[in-house]
Amino acid sequence: MADFLIVGGGVIGMMLARELADAGADVTLVERRQCAQESSWAGGGIVSPLYPWRYPQAITALADYSQGFYPQLAAQLKEETGIDPELRQDGLVFLRVADQQAALDWAAQGQRRLEKVDAAFLYETEPDVAPGFSEALWMPDVASIRNPRLGQALRASLQKRANIRLLEETDVVDLYHEEGEVLGVQGKQMVLAARHTILCAGAWTGLLLNKLDQTTAIKPVRGQMILFKAPKGLLNRVVLMDGRYLIPRNDGRILAGSTLEYAGFDKHTTEDALISLRDTAYQIMPRLRDYDIEHHWAGLRPGSLDGIPLMGPVPGYRGLSISAGHFRNGLVLAPAATQVMADQLLQRPPKIDPAPYQLLAD
């Protein structure tokens, strides 16, 4: 019997499995597809909330921890697995920010590096951004990571650990429980037992909790993105305007995203979204008209109330915890989410106060 059974092999589930295993626990991780093929693959990989000053303190506390953690994690994974997650620490440019003063006040209050820059700085930094901007906001410490490569590296890292059992292409259809205690999960052809079960199944987490008559605000929120086959050097930093962004990759490709759609579990792409994303990308960087759109895809974010994740024990059920509902910031918050959950599960003194993320009993 495993010490811990994690349902869901996204970045958050894999990071937690790695942390628990490194603490000496026996861990089973169950994933309905292959690891990191849902929202962990589909996102953009910006290691910051899009407009961080607009978020509640509960999100800011997690984001601050995570942003300082990724350089170390990326280096460890590359050394351990040979797979480079391609962390880029090149900063983020904000164009046309309506609440600019609120952003500057937030930065000053928290002693964060965010500043207003003039047109000369902007166009020296990113010469191919659309002309006509007289100023911008600049956060030099914001990083981005190539999330599919991060997922590959984490998966390879788990496979190297003898005390992690990785079960992919394995559907969980129910939670196995008796007299208020969860003893594991029910698959289509097997029961997997564990001393403690953790639900990290992203947008699907709510469906499993529903089987226990537990309701949460977690629900799928579709996001669509496109990829331009651009040359190296056309864009070197993340650029954000009006809630949409461009993200450069090491090979020159540029991601443009993303939509925010309440369409249930429908992951189909739409022509309207493609046109909207394409036109916004052209507005930010007109030269993208010269390059083909190579790919168009959709993913399902685990939406939640105010974007605040649920991380902790499920009331009324011994042996069951949850880490889900990270909404648009799953990758951003993953290292902090791992810390919050591991400290609770291993009964360690908390490095991050878990109170804002607890499920409340009905």
Rank of each mutant, 00 (worst) to 15 (best):
Arg301Ala: 03
Trp106Phe: 14
Gly330Asn: 07
Thr215Ala: 15
Ile218Glu: 00
Gly264Lys: 00
Val172Asn: 03
Gly151Leu: 02
Leu209Gly: 00
Pro354Trp: 13
Gln34Trp: 15
Leu87Thr: 00
Leu95His: 06
Leu122Asn: 00
Gln152Leu: 12
Ser144Tyr: 10
Arg249Cys: 07
Arg318Trp: 08
His326Met: 14
Leu192Gly: 00
Asp251Thr: 13
Val129Gln: 09
Ser48Trp: 11
Val340Asp: 03
Leu137Gln: 04
Pro302Tyr: 13
Asp26Ala: 02
Leu235Lys: 00
Thr125Val: 00
Pro302Ile: 12
Pro85Asn: 12
Ile6Glu: 00
Pro350Lys: 14
Gln57Arg: 04
Asp26Thr: 13
Ala273Val: 12
Pro356Ile: 08
Asp22Ala: 13
Ala263Trp: 03
Ile218Asp: 04
Leu345Asp: 05
Leu207Ser: 12
Arg113Lys: 08
Asp64Met: 06
Gln89Ile: 08
Leu175Glu: 10
Glu271Phe: 14
Asp213Phe: 10
Glu271Gly: 08
Thr269His: 08
Leu167Lys: 00
Tyr291Phe: 15
Lys232Arg: 14
Ile145Lys: 03
Leu208Trp: 04
Arg249Thr: 03
Gly307Val: 04
Val11Leu: 01
Leu92Phe: 13
Arg149Gly: 05
Ser134Cys: 06
Asp26His: 11
Val117Ser: 01
Val182Glu: 11
Gly299Lys: 08
Leu29Arg: 01
His296Trp: 15
